[in-house]
Design a protein around this nucleic acid. Structure first.
Length: 513
RNA sequence: GGUCCGUUCGUCUAGGGGUUAGGACGUAUCCCUUUCACGGAUAAAACACGGGUUCGAUUCCCGUACGGACUACCA
């Protein structure tokens, strides 16, 4: 009987949840579901200076939108709460003190100026890694160098201090990462990380280990940026005597910029023309706006499918997966090792796929909504006709409205390139004849077939080859050189409107040579 | 700079000591279509480099190059 799998997603509420964080959450969720375990959300808000109002709500909403809601969270507490580190504050100090007692941590009283001076001194002495470590700590102000009396006095008098981990000088630290296999580092390259800050809050390293232990976390699935500090975490488990229940680590490959340099960052999104956040976000301090996948028109299913394949694959050639199917197929072993560039073209393809699998009613609703927002209303039949016309050509829901503009208002100008190439006397002759026929009302009822039949007979009567002038006809009525089936467009517009537009085109374009 | 991690078509990737190195996105061409798109078909396109080990290496080992992460009283 093995222990129930418990994993956690542990974001900091310092702004909008990044798309990479969302993928981390997704993988955690998939693994938990696959293993029949639990997926927890823990808010890591130990840095009070970076707290951003609204960020926590954003995380909650983004996860809900994606359908990967946690089993336990600040809003749905389980038995190991609280789920916000700021609310767990009281317990961290006692754990830090426990480490001090065991000789694995110590008090340090150095001011930031003194730390800075130390680094400068070491840099000047050309020490490769100027850091607070097993060697340099002997020259600093801490409970290892100061007399017990002075330490006691400083603590009693309220001198600001931090608690640092006391790392062994010479020791090999190794652990087996689920994705990278054995990772080995020497403790001599590690520094004495601060565990408790002078404001009484723990750092990530301490809080993380204590909470993962207390919350019964069995697998830590997180971004590769944590790999360098994983040895410290392993050491902390050892110091606490929790080695037996230490979670297994899985460090995920990073999401990289599409152009290949560096990890995808918050600033990239709007610069590159696509979102890097799940939802729209306005920074409460700077007012800076960032666009989200949701508001841009990406469907949660599409984003989910896309994100899942950024660093993972099922091992066969299937590509389209629902959340349930992902759960079924997921395994940590099939996560890749190397960084993954973010290619929005593939995301678009997924979105097209999921958009086309929507019902006609859903798509009509998208169009109606945009029309309404633009101050127009569309009849159900017209909206339905437009959706049928465009459904195989859209990428985003907003395209139904955007790409049907020529149906909502007559063109005021015409694609000049097409006009220059296609607007000839044959076209003018035919259009005059066609407009006349439409105005006479011969074609009723006016559907696509009737519109086409009438156009064909007009062409025949004028002795003109239809194929040669079709683009000019399209140009006259839509102003554009390309678009959906023209006869269906005519049907939607109705004979009077088509005739009116042709007359306008004839007037406007006739003067052009 | 140091430590750690990585490297298969442009991109996401499959594969793995002997393969015509497979798929998808994107691109191109053709078919369909009175345009464009959809759909169908086809094509171009990759094992970073150098040494080992081996009968044989893209696959294993080492080095180099390149890329990345980390290097805070941030997470």
């Amino acid at each position: 009987m093995t222990k129930e799998v418990r994993v956690r997603f542990a974001p900091s509420p310092t702004g909008a949840l990044h798309i990479g964080g969302l993928r981390t959450a997704l993988y955690n969720y998939l693994f938990a579901r696959k293993m029949g375990g639990k997926f927890l959300l823990r808010i890591e808000d130990t840095d009070q200076t970076r707290f951003v109002p609204g960020a926590e709500e954003y995380i909650q909403e983004a996860l809900a939108w994606m359908g990967i809601s946690p089993d336990e969270s600040p809003w749905k507490p389980g038995e190991v709460g609280p789920y916000r580190q700021s609310e767990r504050k009281v317990s961290y100090m006692s754990y830090a003190l426990d480490l001090v007692e065991k000789g694995h941590a110590y008090y340090a009283f150095d001011s930031s100026e003194e730390l800075e001076a130390m680094r400068e001194r070491l840099t000047a002495a050309r020490v490769v890694q100027p850091q607070y470590n097993s060697i340099t700590r002997t020259q600093m102000k801490n409970s290892l160098t100061l007399s017990p009396e002075e330490v006691k006095e400083r603590l009693a008098s309220g001198d600001p201090y931090v608690i640092r981990a006391k790392l062994p000088l010479k020791e090999e630290v190794r652990f087996q990462d689920l994705i990278r296999d054995w990772v080995l580092v020497h403790s001599s390259t590690l520094d004495d990380k601060v565990l408790m800050k002078s404001d009484g809050m723990p750092t990530y390293h301490l809080a993380n280990i204590v909470d993962d232990h207390l919350m019964g976390i069995t697998h830590v699935i997180r971004g590769e940026e944590w790999l360098p500090s994983a040895p410290l975490h392993v050491l902390l488990y050892r110091f606490f005597g929790w080695e037996e229940t230490m979670p297994q680590f899985a460090h995920l490959p990073l999401l990289l910029k599409p152009d290949g340099n560096g990890k995808l960052s918050k600033r990239d999104g709007d610069k590159l023309g696509f979102p890097v956040f799940p939802l729209n976000w306005i920074d409460p301090f700077t007012g800076e706006k960032s666009s989200g996948f949701r508001e841009t028109g990406y469907l949660p299913d599409a984003l989910l499918n896309f994100l899942a394949f950024l660093g993972w694959n099922p091992g066969d050639e299937r590509e389209i997966f629902s959340l349930e199917e992902l759960v079924e197929a997921f395994s940590i072993e099939r996560i890749g090792k190397s960084g993954t560039k973010f290619d929005i073209a593939k995301a678009k393809w997924f979105n097209e796929h999921y958009l086309r699998s929507k019902t006609q009613e859903d798509l009509i609703a998208y169009l109606q909504q945009d029309a309404l927002a633009a101050g127009t209303t569309l009849s159900q039949e017209k909206a339905g006709a437009i959706v049928s016309l465009l459904r195989d050509r859209v990428t985003l829901p907003g395209d139904f409205w955007k790409d049907s503009q020529f149906l909502h208002q007559a063109p005021s100008d015409f694609d000049s390139e097409v006009a220059a190439k296609k607007w000839n006397t044959d076209a003018v002759t035919l259009l005059q004849a066609y407009a006349g026929a439409l105005e006479s009302g011969v074609a009723t009822p006016f559907d696509g077939t009737a519109a086409k039949a009438l156009l064909e007979s007009s062409a025949e009567a004028s002795g003109i080859k239809l194929g040669k002038v079709m683009q000019a006809v399209r140009l006259a009525v839509t102003g554009l050189g390309a678009g959906p089936d023209l006869m269906e467009v005519f049907a939607i517009l109705g004979p009077q409107e088509v005739a009116k537009r042709i007359r306008f085109a004839l007037d406007t374009l006739a003067t052009v040579d």
